[in-house]
């Protein structure tokens, strides 16, 4: 029987006999959340897949030593957000184009999707998100798509709830402006 709670998964993972099963269960539990976070941060499926792989490899290597100072959920999300931000940082370093051109490139990647429809509100939102600065984009994605409470986000990003609310409000206003103008 597959364990369900994070605590059970952790116990199973620490037992060499059930480590693989626990890891598979953990991936099944978190893969979609991590993938969609990565996909909206880095846009392309291939890049998101790289971020997901790196995240779960780090989880595999670090879970045995996890000290339970925070919840497993927060720890996993912290690894995933760090991987997303590191990936974007590496892209910036490798790229010869300016930051605004990189925003434009991400928007073009969104438009390249086979189901893209410029008239639909949800696609306008996807484009608007790519115009946001990285941290604001991350806060908006965690709140709007992942439905994360500010309290949890505060622990994850080690930022005050007030600052996160302000960041989300700024992001929302920029998105509203984008939607109204396009």
């Amino acid at each position: 029987m597959t364990p369900c709670t994070d605590q059970q998964l952790l116990l199973e993972f620490r037992d060499p006999n059930t480590k693989d099963v626990a890891f598979t269960a953990l991936v099944k539990k978190y893969q979609q959340k991590i993938y969609w976070l990565a996909r909206r941060m880095v846009v392309s499926h291939e890049d998101a897949n790289d971020v997901v792989q790196n995240t779960f490899v780090r989880i595999w290597n670090g879970l045995g030593k996890f000290r339970e100072d925070s919840q497993l959920y927060t720890w996993i999300y912290r690894i995933a957000t760090n991987e997303c931000l590191s990936f974007l940082e590496q892209q910036k370093r490798k790229s010869l184009t300016s930051l605004s051109e990189q925003d434009q490139e991400r928007a073009e990647s969104v438009k390249a999707d086979a189901h893209f429809n410029a008239q639909k509100l949800e696609w306008k939102l996807e484009l608007a998100i790519q115009q946001l600065p990285e941290r604001q984009r991350l806060v908006f994605i965690l709140r709007y798509y992942q439905e994360m409470p500010y309290e949890q986000m505060s622990k994850l990003l080690e930022t005050s709830e007030g600052a996160l609310k302000a960041s989300y409000h700024h992001a929302a206003k920029k998105i509203e402006q984008y939607i109204l103008n396009h």
Partner: peptide, 14 residues
């Protein structure tokens, strides 16, 4: 904040 934007129900990206 954005009255015209509903909460996301279905993923747009495939």
């Amino acid at each position: 904040l954005i009255p015209e934007l509903p909460l996301q129900q279905q993923p747009t990206i495939q």
